[in-house]
Design a protein around this nucleic acid. Structure first.
Lengths: 357, 357
DNA sequence: GTGAAAGCGCTAACAT
DNA sequence: ATGTTAGCGCTTTCAC
């Protein structure tokens, strides 16, 4: 068993504990504890408090979080469960979480699930075993047993990016409906009329509300969201985007623009277009969603909808902190506004395509 | 103070402890502890052991890691310090670490430093305050005070991606010298002779050894690494790549290829080339390093050197685990082999450029 | 082979 | 306003 302590200048120094601080300040440990705890500091008179703080400083005292946790049942640790950190939307979310936690004393512990339900369950259990104080979930499906469990067991949780159908849980999401509206309006303003949509999985709130947003925006713009011009991807992936695009073109060859549910699906359209010899934006325009890195370097650069990922992470962390500190805080629903980033994958429909082919 | 326990079926159930398990199995807690600890299980007879394990199962016992940590001074937690998770080389490294830790009971806690020395120090302190059992550092400079401290204070540490000049610390890195050799050989085989290098910062082992690798590979190939054809970037960034490329072209206009120290620097060359109206690979070829995502989608797609990032993370985690479990394990140096990914940014030098301009 | 007992470092109810 | 005391849940030495 390792003995608490560290090597300093080659010498082993045992860890300094609260008792050491108390001894040096010639007070009782509980007094020292009260001084060092902001919530109880006011109970102690100024001169004694100062004796304690200077003693703590001189000794380089660092409280033992394990002792604190054992006593209080709070670990100041939050679990963050995401599908895959290699998906470029998540790094900025994570940075936002990390930065928002920075001053609070909380630490985020990350885990990836690869959208695998079993793995989600395992990781959830492990997080509980680790006694996290709360969870930030980016893995929610519209009906999600994990979220149900959190609510049932009163585990503080905030959903991020995706939400669930039941409304009694806090979440921080992007305004997907509005975002898709931006894309549709952008295309409509350029003169597009026959606009197609390649949606994400409708079991995810992102896929669902972008799909709904598309239908609504078309209607609002006086355009028709034809069923034959709507394709559903099994996942937000390039390969699904490619597949769905080719399938779409089997059904309809008159569309002049595609609103993809995310950037990867849009990339799939790029692949398919290259394969069958269509030009972007000459033969059709494409929009993505998320504005992941390097889209500006594509040929053509991809018009997309930018989501404030960093702010999303930061806001989720703040919402969870409020719940963690305030006890039973109200359920919070935060929706962030995205913005359109117009690039070269969208242009006015050409004469040829405008007529239909 | 929250009471340990959870809501199950709407009812609050206090946390089951080792004592509960022992009571149910009608043994002493110490016996139950010995059964549940693989290292001491053999001390207990089979029938009693079984009584304990079934009791634990029936009660759904989950050991309290805080109590364990308080008692043993081991948190089964490892700090991972990286420059920035938004840099696409780090997500796969992290996945490798996470997966390698999965079965071990260890958890990685991530922190980003943005290559800021002060922040590194702060985070280091916080990690120690959290009582991590060890560290994986991806932030090392060739001379690094943090690494020195770890060695001085005997904190188990493994460096990853970058290493330090002193050799008495474990690390897992890519073979940068070899990797650059692949790029040079690839270009030389295409007929390039006047090859330039845009290096990274020479204070980082990656920048330094890629630079050295370039000089060596040129010599080995019977080519001359002219000083005027070597530029140094202040960071592995696109803007530095752009700046260094333009500066390079001030000094020399006869090079037919650029070996960039990483992909971002190569992207900077793309930017500069577009600005001054040079064609890639028509006017000059470019190679990158790392093979980050979406390079195949660039125009032209970027020839680069692929590093096994995932394996790098997994290996670093394994090396650290060996040290953590085995006590004082030997210092390990692991070097992984990269491979060339030939794409469209490299081609034989054109007649025009071959003559020099 | 198993039980008894101490204690890791801290907080908080209670006592003064 | 400060001290006393008990105990969070576990491991581990010691005793039988």
């Amino acid at each position: 068993m390792p003995i608490a302590g560290r090597y300093i200048c080659g010498m082993f120094r045992p860890r300094v504990t609260l008792r050491d601080v108390a001894r040096r300040a010639r007070v009782h440990t509980s007094t020292a504890s009260r001084v060092l705890n902001p919530a109880t500091r006011e109970l102690i008179t100024e001169p004694i408090a100062r004796r304690v703080t200077t003693a703590a400083e001189q000794l380089g005292y660092q409280p033992n979080p394990n002792a604190y946790s054992l006593k209080t049942n709070r670990t100041r640790t939050v679990g963050v469960i995401i599908p895959d950190i290699a998906n470029p939307v998540f790094p900025p979310i994570l940075r936002g979480i990390e930065d928002a936690f920075a001053e609070s004393g909380y630490t985020a512990v990350l885990a990836n699930t690869d959208n695998d339900g079993d793995r989600e369950g395992t990781i959830f259990q492990e997080m509980l075993a680790r006694r996290v104080d709360g969870l930030i979930l980016a893995t929610a499906r519209r009906r999600d047993p994990l979220v149900d469990r959190c609510l049932l067991e009163k585990i503080p949780v905030v959903l991020i990016n995706r939400t669930v159908d039941r409304g009694d849980v806090s979440f921080v999401v992007n305004d997907d409906t509005f975002g898709i509206g931006l894309a549709v309006a952008h295309l409509a303003a350029m003169g597009h009329v026959r606009i197609a949509h390649l949606s994400g999985p409708l079991t995810l709130s992102t896929g669902f509300s972008r799909h709904r947003g598309f239908v609504r925006a078309m209607k609002k713009g006086g355009l028709r969201a034809e069923p034959k011009r709507i394709g559903v991807c099994g996942g937000f992936t390039e390969s699904e985007g490619r597949r769905a695009f080719l399938e779409l073109r089997e059904r309809d060859r008159t569309f002049t623009a595609v609103v993809a549910a995310n950037d990867m699906i849009a990339l799939g359209c790029y692949d398919a277009a290259r394969e069958i010899g269509l030009r972007i934006p000459g033969d059709f325009s494409v929009t993505g969603f998320n504005d992941m890195p390097f889209l500006d370097k594509l040929q053509p650069s991809l018009t997309t909808v930018r989501i404030p990922h960093y702010q999303m992470g930061a806001q989720a962390a703040r919402t969870l902190l409020a719940r963690l500190n305030g006890g039973l805080a109200a359920v919070e629903h935060v929706t962030l506004l995205p913005e359109l980033v117009a690039r070269d994958s969208t242009a006015a429909p050409s004469r040829r395509t405008r007529r239909g082919r």
